[in-house]
Write a protein that binds this DNA or RNA. Structure first.
Lengths: 160, 160
DNA sequence: ACTGAAAAACAAGGGTT
DNA sequence: AACCCTTGTTTTTCAGT
């Protein structure tokens, strides 16, 4: 989790390959960057240990697995601590981590406190999530939904 | 790219493993789901060919590679076609695909037309992107930025 | 630091139940 | 549809440059 992991040009090129082809063999990566498989192996291991590469993910077509609806949800929390134990913020964060529908959650500058990306099967499921789970949460004051009509671009690759 | 790829319980479990461990060997996946490596291989190949698994991605720690600032950008487009060639929508979409800072872009219901997630090195870079690129685009009417203060949750794994 | 060779592990296809 | 077995490939270690 280092902030300055002093990557050289070859590390950057290796990362670029793995961002789109995470199952490439060390030989294949080596061919792309002009290095032997064993050297590539050592560099990738170093990047993993330094926390630069955090994990490898298969990217799944949501519609193909029956998850046809995604929404962005702006959430505003209560401003006051009702209990002496912990803040609404901490309670909300802990809950978000347990809700599988929420695939992404960030705290933001601006009027709304959090932006969630929520992926569900259909509108019935979405409605249940908002009514029965989100709005019932004691930390949540209100929320605003925007449904995704079309995904124009969706990459997991950072601009390197 | 099928919408009904009739996945059985084992396909679902294989996907769950690969979503978080995309470089696992077929043996390792097989151990998790109780199947032999060759059977797992055939099922994964089938999922790839059916477009259920679209690709494999190494997930990179943005801060560790010097990309410390991420922002959500709500964009509203011009409503009128100024040229007879194509709509502002098409022009905007085509441009978004060429802007590397934009890692995510969806069209939404609600007041704003598009939501972008933008990842950059620092505020200077962000400012340049908005002033010199985004707002200069002929299709763009206006935009509103929310900066990410903290990532509470960020998974690439769908809730299966 | 990188390479190349050698051993161990793995992938991938065919035959069998 | 799944398993086992076999062959070719890949990973991983290690001595050498």
């Amino acid at each position: 989790m280092n902030t300055d992991s002093h990557l050289d040009a070859i590390d950057t090129r290796i990362i670029r390959v793995l961002q789109t082809h995470a199952r490439a063999t060390f030989d294949e990566v080596g061919e792309q960057v002009g290095l032997s498989a064993s050297t590539v192996l050592r560099r990738i291991k170093r990047l993993e240990e330094a926390g630069v590469i955090t994990r490898y993910a298969a990217i799944i077509n949501a519609e193909a697995v029956g998850l046809g609806l995604t929404a962005y949800l702006n959430v505003r929390l209560e401003k006051h601590t009702t209990s002496h134990k912990r803040s609404p913020m901490d309670a909300f964060r802990a809950s978000v981590l347990t809700w599988p529908e929420v695939v992404e959650c960030s705290s933001l500058t601006g009027e709304m406190d959090y932006l969630l990306r929520v992926v569900v099967r259909d509108m019935a499921h979405y409605s249940r999530f908002v009514m029965d789970t989100l709005l019932r949460h004691p930390s949540v004051q209100d929320c605003k939904t925007s449904f995704v009509l079309d995904r124009v671009k969706h990459t997991t690759a950072l601009p390197l």
